[in-house]
Amino acid sequence: MKPGLPNLAEIWVYLAATPLFGLTLTLVAYVAADALYQKFDKHPFANPVLISVSGVVAVLTLSGVPYQTYFEGAQFVHFLLGTATVALAVPLARLWSELKARALPLLCAVALGGAASVLLAVGTATLLGASPVFVASLATKSVTAPIAMGIAEQIGGSPTLAAVFTLMTGICGALMATPLLNALGMKDWSARGYAVGVAAHGMGTARAWSVHPRAGAYASLAMGLHGILGALLLPYVGKWVIGFVA
């Protein structure tokens, strides 16, 4: 090694093992993906989560850094997901008087969407020959990930698979929301956001926030209600549907 020229490999080994690496990679990937998202005028297929996750996975695979090492840095971002969830109460409280008047249609909509999600997921997966563990892990996919993991375990699924499927559902919902709701001719931001929140929880809600504040607030409401409803009913309903269909 020439004097004065630092050994890049050594620096890389050091950096890749510190929390700084995972944290920096996450933020840089997101900033770049968000810039693309804005550049494409918030087109649904330029979804910032999808782009930044693909970027991070590519970097980790190419550099051989294991996920666990990455997560040591990224956990600081991950932790704030809980804080952001608590923060959803602020826009919801602002809508309180309006929500009281609409309680019945909103509750019926989340129950309908939840039932459709379980029946269609279990039905389709069974029809296509998925294994019982896959079927049970898919039953909870439209409930926010931390709740879905707990329920999946109770009905014979795998918590990790449930987490993977909820994430895929979130991306799928964020991608299909705009074309689907436009095709239905939905003009009401609150109804649009609510439908996205029922089907695609957090990532759908993130998409809704980036499009319109009212859509975002209603999406968070739907996600919260679906989560609570799911936690109370899905352990029983899920088992029953799986027994009935599969």
């Binding site: 309908l112 969407g113 029946l119 997921a121 389709t124 439209s142 799928c172 109804a191 439908a195 029922v198």
Partner: peptide, 22 residues
């Protein structure tokens, strides 16, 4: 199997509440 299940059920879970609220 899982891909189809996710697409079909996410579509249904968004479509039905949207139509109901509309």
């Amino acid at each position: 199997a899982w891909f189809a299940a996710i697409v079909v059920s996410t579509l249904g879970a968004m479509l039905l509440p949207a139509l109901l609220l509309k």
